[in-house]
Simulated scan of single mutants.
Amino acid sequence: MSYPDIQLFTAATMNGWKPLIFLEEAGAEYELVGVDFSTRAHKAPDFLALNPNGKIPALIDRGNNDFAVFESGAMLWYLAEKYGQFLSADPNTRSETLQWLMLQMGGVGPAMGQAMFFARFAEDAGQASAAATARFTGESRRLFEVLDTRLQERDWLVGDAYSIADMAIFPWVRCHSWATISMDGLDHLAAWIERLDARPAVARALQLPNPAPKFLARYD
């Protein structure tokens, strides 16, 4: 029996959807392995052999001697190079794409993750901090404004083409309501979300793996 090159270990989270969006958009064959956080499967020795940090997603490329890749941004970069899609060969456009990818990894993702924690989970756990909530929701909103400005005269973040930069940032921005981030006045960013939501491959990816947690619904 033959198996697809890519075996993807992931879950329905913002980072977890990123490689799924790429694979669905690229039309690549892959094997999806859902990771169950409730059983701490991501901390098991076999998973830690793929990702020593014990986080999803992670993948194995059977077509490359079972090469393992972890960190969702690095994974998008790896897949773009493997399949020759969604990352321009032009050096300047390629660099721009990677710059916006790094903004997600170093800015949007961390800020939104903390905003979600303090605006939602900390409250339920009795660890609420008004200062921390204001700090991270404010930083998330500032980054949204950066993105909105970038999208004033373009459909996609880099050049004229949809890229891994869009794929990386989209799942985080899409969950703005859960992080209590206002979208008021961010019309260009809102239109970008709608463009991505309308893509069939994106819609498929967001339904995987099942079941998607209710708290990640866009308009919860």
Rank of each mutant, 00 (worst) to 15 (best):
D155L: 11
R141G: 08
M75Q: 03
A58D: 06
S72V: 04
R135E: 08
W77F: 08
F118G: 02
L79V: 01
N65M: 10
R150C: 08
N51Y: 07
F136Y: 12
R150A: 12
M116Y: 09
E25V: 02
K55D: 14
L76N: 06
A80L: 01
K82S: 02
G34H: 15
K43V: 13
S140W: 02
G159K: 09
L79M: 01
T137D: 01
I60D: 06
G106F: 02
Y78L: 04
R135L: 07
A49W: 05
K82N: 04
G84S: 03
V35R: 10
E139S: 07
I60F: 04
A131E: 15
S88T: 07
P91T: 05
A132C: 11
A28S: 04
S88L: 01
L76F: 05
P45S: 15
E71M: 03
E24T: 00
E145I: 14
L23K: 05
G126F: 08
A119S: 14
A131K: 11
F121A: 12
N64Q: 09
A26D: 05
Y83S: 05
F144G: 09
A41D: 15
S38M: 10
A132Y: 07
A131I: 14
A44W: 14
T97Q: 02
R142F: 00
M116V: 13
L76S: 03
M116F: 14
F144H: 06
G113Y: 01
E25M: 01
M116E: 14
A125W: 11
M105E: 09
Y78H: 04
P57F: 06
F67R: 08
D66W: 02
L79C: 01
E29C: 08
A134Q: 11
K43D: 15
G73K: 00
F37D: 09
L157C: 05
E145W: 10
W100Y: 02
P110V: 05
R94H: 05
G107M: 08
A130K: 10
D90C: 01
P45H: 11
M102G: 10
M112C: 14
E96A: 11
V146L: 10
A44C: 15
R62G: 01
L48I: 07
L87M: 00
D148P: 04
F121Q: 13
P91G: 00
L103G: 10
A125N: 11
T97N: 00
G113C: 07
I21T: 07
W156I: 11
S38R: 12
W100E: 03
E139H: 00
R62V: 04
K55A: 15
F37E: 12
E145V: 11
L79F: 00
G54Y: 10
P110H: 03
E145S: 15
A130W: 12
N92G: 12
W156E: 06
L98F: 02
P45W: 08
T39G: 13
P57A: 07
V158Q: 09
I56P: 11
P91S: 01
R62D: 02
F144T: 07
L50K: 02
E24I: 05
P52T: 14
A130R: 12
N65F: 12
G84N: 00
P52A: 08
A115Y: 03
F117D: 06
S72C: 10
